[in-house]
Amino acid sequence: MTVVDLGFARLMRELRQGQGLSFRRLAKIVHYSHTYLWDIETGIKQPTPHVAEALDRGLNANGRLTRLIAVEAQALGTVDSSSLAAANSDSALRSADVQAADRAPRMSATRSPDGSASQWAQAASLLYDIFVRNRPPLTRLCVERYSRRLRRETGASPFHMEATMQGRTPHAECYAISRQPAPSDIAGLLSLAPGEQVICRENRYYADGEPIQLGHTYIPLKIAKSSALFHKTNLGPGGLFERLEDLGYRVARIREQVTTRFPTRQEALALKTPPYVPVILVLHTATDDNGSPFEVTRFIMRSDLMTVQYEMPLGD
């Protein structure tokens, strides 16, 4: 159980205002969303020890904020004091991030012979409380994000559009473009022959400076050819779908399949996922007016920082 002194919010406000920092500027420094920081300062939400440490560093508070938070040992049950100390230390948390993907699939909330929950399960529960429950999610707006009208009006890509609509500061980067044989599932979705060549664009997405999503976009080589899709990491206003439309491929229909699993080691490192936090997989396929698929993207999202929202008309 985390106990927060009533003076925490007041001291945080004094420090932030004294340094002339807006919530958005502070969010970039401590790598938490500005909406979450506003909730803490106004008392709507309580800070975790990890957040307090980040604010101490960001506001040069010399530990004053951290000292206003206490974690009661009984919240850990049979987990000993060394486990608690490790959970509250930066080095241990960073190490846990790196090892999350290797451990998560094998660890389970099994019970020991005496009937008590295992120490690992209880430690996982503590880490989940610290990292997950108090973090505001970014919602994937699966209808609005593909609006052609909004894309033309704003010049923004779908991710930038939905993040901005929710008061978040978006950033996306394409860090690799390659030509490769289509993976078997991607080939099937794109109606390609086995081994047929595609262009793969690998992207990372951030909200308020925090990595929340990965995306691997596959486009048939016969479509991308020598276009910007193959040669440019920055696709300009409107992003991917605007460049596809320039080539004559206008999105008429989107199909998305949603599943979950634990992240791979590489995904956990890229997304900085805490231990035991799964990822949401969205396998997205775009088709034209004739029903022909021309683009597939595999999105990998942190389940603690993102939600998926669908809206659809009902048939008879």
Results as ranks from 00 to 15, higher is better:
S108R: 08
R204T: 13
Y36A: 14
D97E: 09
E245N: 12
H216T: 00
T287L: 02
E144P: 00
L76M: 12
R261N: 05
R64L: 07
P49C: 04
F262Q: 10
V277Q: 07
C174A: 10
V143L: 06
C142Q: 12
L150R: 13
G155Y: 03
Y146A: 06
E256W: 00
A101Y: 13
I69K: 11
E14C: 04
Y32W: 14
P49R: 01
R265N: 03
L15T: 06
T169Y: 13
A182W: 12
S125P: 00
R148C: 02
L192D: 01
V71K: 01
V296I: 05
R16A: 13
S125V: 01
L283P: 05
P158W: 09
A228F: 12
V198W: 05
L68N: 01
V198E: 07
I223M: 06
A73Q: 14
E41T: 12
L26R: 01
M161H: 15
S91E: 13
L240T: 14
E202F: 09
V198I: 09
M301I: 13
D114G: 05
E202V: 09
E311T: 12
L21H: 09
D289W: 04
K232A: 08
A104I: 01
N88L: 11
G155A: 07
R152V: 02
L6A: 12
N234W: 02
Q180K: 11
L229R: 13
T154I: 07
L214A: 11
G115L: 02
D102A: 08
S89E: 02
E72L: 15
S292K: 07
L127V: 00
T154C: 05
S157F: 10
V132I: 14
K45P: 03
R135P: 00
N234H: 06
R64M: 03
G58P: 00
F241I: 02
L37I: 15
S33K: 13
L235V: 14
V143N: 06
I223R: 03
V258W: 00
I29F: 10
A96T: 05
R265H: 05
G7W: 07
I254K: 07
A101Q: 08
G195V: 09
L141P: 03
R149D: 11
E72I: 13
T260N: 05
N60T: 08
D185I: 11
L37F: 13
L314I: 05
G18C: 06
R64Y: 03
G236I: 00
P105W: 03
A101T: 02
R111W: 02
R24M: 08
K272S: 15
D208G: 04
F241V: 00
Q122H: 12
L190A: 10
T233R: 10
V71P: 05
Y146W: 08
G315S: 08
V79N: 11
E267D: 13
P47D: 13
S147P: 06
P263C: 06
L247K: 06
R111S: 04
A207T: 05
T78E: 14
R298Q: 04
E53S: 11
G155I: 07
T297S: 04
M312S: 07
L138K: 04
P263I: 05
T297Q: 05
G291Q: 08
Q180Y: 03
V79Y: 15
T233L: 06
A182R: 14
P105Q: 06
T48D: 10
S184Y: 11
T287R: 06
W38S: 14
L84D: 03
Q197E: 15
R67A: 08
P293N: 08
